[in-house]
Computed example of a mutant assay.
Amino acid sequence: MICKDNIHFPDHMRVAIIGAGPAGLGVARVLRDLAIPDVWVLERGKVGQSFLNWPSGTKLLTPSFAGNVFGMTDLNAISFDSSPGWSLRREHPDGLAYAQYLEHAAVAFGINVQCGVEAQSILPEGEGFALVTNHGQFTADFVIWACGQFSAPSDGDLPGAELAIHYGQVRNWQDVPGEEVFIIGGYESGIDAAIGLARAGKHPIVLDSGAPWLGGDKDPSKSLSPYTLQRLDEARETAPITLIPDAEIIALDQEQDGIHILAADGRSWLSTNTPILATGFGSGTAPVSEYFDYDDNGSPLLSSQDESAVFPGLFLVGPEVSHNGHLFCFIYKFRQRFAVVARAIAARMGVDTSPLEIYYENNMFLDDLSCCDDDMCLC
């Protein structure tokens, strides 16, 4: 294991990265390529903790394939010279396998990672920051927030949500009680829940305000992935999965005979078992929300260098990065912004940024967002 129980990082760091998932480790690797000293990744759990917390059977939506030698980096790799597809021998790794890839990458890249450290708050101090943690206070010149969203399940402000269990809190679908289980929400997590429950011998019933399984946006960040649709079709060949569209759920109500699931159009369903909330995830920036402004969709407002619009020196990497409606929620998307953040920090430190050229060559340096316009895939 890369993380030890003893805490041994310095009192002052040049760069503190909060979170040891693909975003935190990926940007740490870029900073290492720039030879920036005293870069530390602080993780409250273990390397890849969010992936370790995934429900059993959940897999990455994007396929892994070792095409690096042809200039095509593995979609799930955090660097241009690694491939979870090759090292794990899996096309769609599950959470446990992907966490193993991340730990191996941290070791191979020589990244300083300290586990068991929870960043509780960030305070301005001089030209840098003071980090308040469960192991005391430390200082840093720059902070990169890389906490992701899986640890922030959202109930969508649904009245009665406490009567259900969130998708992100389930570890094994076999452990969900009952035979008939209602799922509120039909996007990726909702359909993944349905597949997991069906394979566990249960009858999942999915309620969604639309019908994501019938089609959607060409942007894979806004629609069901082909892999999910394929898995759904395969599961429905051998197990009952009921999909109910146009069901906008407005409340859960505890009655003597069970939990009533109420829809806006007056329909209701009686659940004798605990429903599953597949209502998405909130912001991973919640612990430092006072240092970010947010748009109407709840996305952090960032500069062109993915820096907080109100707190210079605080950067964001990971699935919450968004610019002009362009979402960077998949690994292959948000990794293209690592070099943007690294360049900004290096420039302020007077460090030569020419080593970043290799990231351009490997399509891992996206600083011109005009290429993201939705003018393709018209068929």
Rank of each mutant, 00 (worst) to 15 (best):
I2C: 07
I2V: 14
C3H: 06
N6P: 12
V15Q: 08
A16N: 05
A16K: 02
A16H: 01
A16L: 07
G19Y: 06
A20L: 00
A23K: 01
A23L: 10
L25A: 05
R29E: 05
V30C: 06
D38M: 09
L42E: 12
E43L: 05
S50Y: 03
L52R: 12
W54G: 01
P63G: 04
N68G: 14
V69M: 11
T73G: 11
T73W: 00
L75S: 08
L75A: 11
D81V: 02
E91G: 00
P93E: 03
P93W: 04
D94E: 13
G95M: 02
Y101G: 10
E103R: 12
H104T: 09
N112D: 15
Q114V: 14
G116H: 06
A119P: 03
E125K: 02
E127C: 00
E127G: 04
F129S: 08
T133G: 01
N134G: 09
V143M: 02
S151V: 00
G156M: 02
G156C: 04
G156N: 11
L158P: 05
G160Y: 03
L163S: 04
A164G: 07
Q169W: 06
V170R: 09
W173V: 07
D175M: 13
V176Y: 11
F182T: 00
I184W: 06
D192L: 15
I195G: 10
A198G: 13
A198L: 09
K202R: 10
H203T: 05
I205Y: 04
V206G: 00
V206T: 06
L207Y: 01
P212Y: 13
W213H: 11
L214G: 01
G215R: 10
G216S: 01
D217F: 07
P220S: 13
L224E: 09
S225T: 15
L229W: 07
R231I: 06
L232F: 11
E234G: 09
A235H: 13
P245V: 05
E248R: 09
Q256W: 10
D257I: 03
D257M: 07
G258N: 14
H260D: 00
L262I: 15
D265M: 08
G266K: 10
I276S: 03
I276Y: 13
L277G: 12
G280C: 13
T285H: 10
A286D: 05
V288E: 03
E290N: 14
Y291M: 08
F292E: 08
Y294R: 05
Y294W: 10
D296F: 07
S299K: 15
S304Y: 10
D306Q: 12
E307K: 08
A309S: 15
P312H: 00
L316Y: 00
V321C: 13
H323L: 08
N324H: 12
G325E: 02
H326K: 11
L327W: 15
F328R: 12
K333Y: 03
Q336S: 09
R343F: 04
A344K: 14
A344C: 11
I345N: 04
R348A: 01
M349I: 11
V351C: 07
Y359D: 14
E361K: 15
N363G: 13
M364Y: 04
C372L: 13
M376K: 09
C377V: 10
